[in-house]
Amino acid sequence: MTSPTALKLGTRRSALAMAQSGMVAEQVRRITGRDVELVEITTYGDVSREHLAQIGGTGVFVSALRDALLRGEIDFAVHSLKDLPTADPEGLTLAAVPLREDPRDALIARDGLTFEQLAASPRGARIGTGSPRRMAQLNAWARSMGLRVETVPIRGNVDTRIGYVASGDLDAVVLAAAGLSRLGRLAEATELISPDIVLPAPGQGALAVECPADDAGLVSVLAELDDPFTRAAVTAERALLAALEAGCSAPVGALADPVVDGHITELRLRGVVGTTDGSSLVQMSITGPTPASRDEAVALGHELADEMLAKGAAGLMGEREL
């Protein structure tokens, strides 16, 4: 009897993308008993050397994978969910949002120092990040303590970014804790930054498993990877981002997490928008029911966006992506 054809999983070529996709591939193998072949695809975001804010950010790591799905060259794809545009693509479906990894940002600093120790040095600190969201909140954090940092825009893979610290070019870099964890490098972090200080990007730490909407069998199989709470949380975060009419390169942070009082009672959604120099922030939160349906999660995100816009959030994002 002929064995079932291997499923083709599309992934970016980076070490982190390959690690994330390999995790999902192994789960699909266990569920289906079928082999899963990783198909490496180069995206525009991988080859462009410009900073994400210059090339738009939205979809630059996603479009090539989606095109391959629609052409039938791959069966499904794995993305970092924070890279996904908020608009739903025609012909494709978000089949699964697996259990979320740690959504926090992580500092990797010289000499094992914390952010406050670096910022308190007489010359301040040069901290690298490719994210306007991080720049806004790190600068605001330093301002709140009367300290000085210089946030330096950088790009590159994890090795490249950490290399700026090892070489002495920068005092520290800030990366997603989830990525470090999936690469087995979380121990290199000198500080995990509390969301009370720096809110992560909407969807940070979560993966998105996408496939053709008309492949009912595959949609059903991949749905077994879905974590309902993670999906509700990231749906609320992304609804906030969409309602602010901001792309993934905008200085917007968001996190939906449980309110725990003996047991999980509510879903709290926090959002922040700020100028990259940290001089102005709009930071607010609301709570809603949990477990939340998709409509409830979307409504929560829209409600918080309305409140933030009323407080002047739009003016802090500069030229919004429409």
Rank of each mutant, 00 (worst) to 15 (best):
1 M>I: 11
2 T>S: 12
7 L>D: 01
10 G>K: 02
11 T>P: 00
16 L>R: 11
22 G>Y: 07
22 G>N: 03
26 E>G: 02
29 R>L: 02
32 T>W: 06
34 R>V: 06
42 T>G: 03
52 L>F: 05
61 F>Q: 06
63 S>F: 13
72 G>V: 03
75 D>C: 05
80 S>F: 04
84 L>I: 06
87 A>M: 10
88 D>Y: 10
89 P>M: 06
91 G>S: 04
95 A>Q: 06
98 P>Q: 07
105 D>E: 10
114 T>R: 08
114 T>L: 13
135 M>K: 15
138 L>R: 08
140 A>I: 01
145 M>G: 11
148 R>C: 11
151 T>D: 00
165 V>Q: 00
170 L>M: 12
186 L>W: 02
187 A>T: 13
189 A>H: 08
191 E>P: 09
191 E>K: 09
193 I>N: 02
194 S>L: 11
194 S>E: 14
195 P>R: 10
200 P>E: 01
210 E>L: 14
227 D>C: 11
228 P>R: 03
229 F>C: 08
234 V>C: 02
235 T>L: 03
236 A>E: 00
244 L>V: 09
251 P>S: 13
252 V>L: 11
252 V>Q: 09
255 L>V: 05
264 I>V: 15
269 L>P: 08
274 G>P: 03
274 G>N: 03
275 T>E: 08
276 T>A: 14
287 T>P: 11
292 A>H: 07
300 L>Y: 04
301 G>P: 05
304 L>V: 06
304 L>K: 12
310 A>M: 14
311 K>C: 14
313 A>I: 05
318 G>L: 00
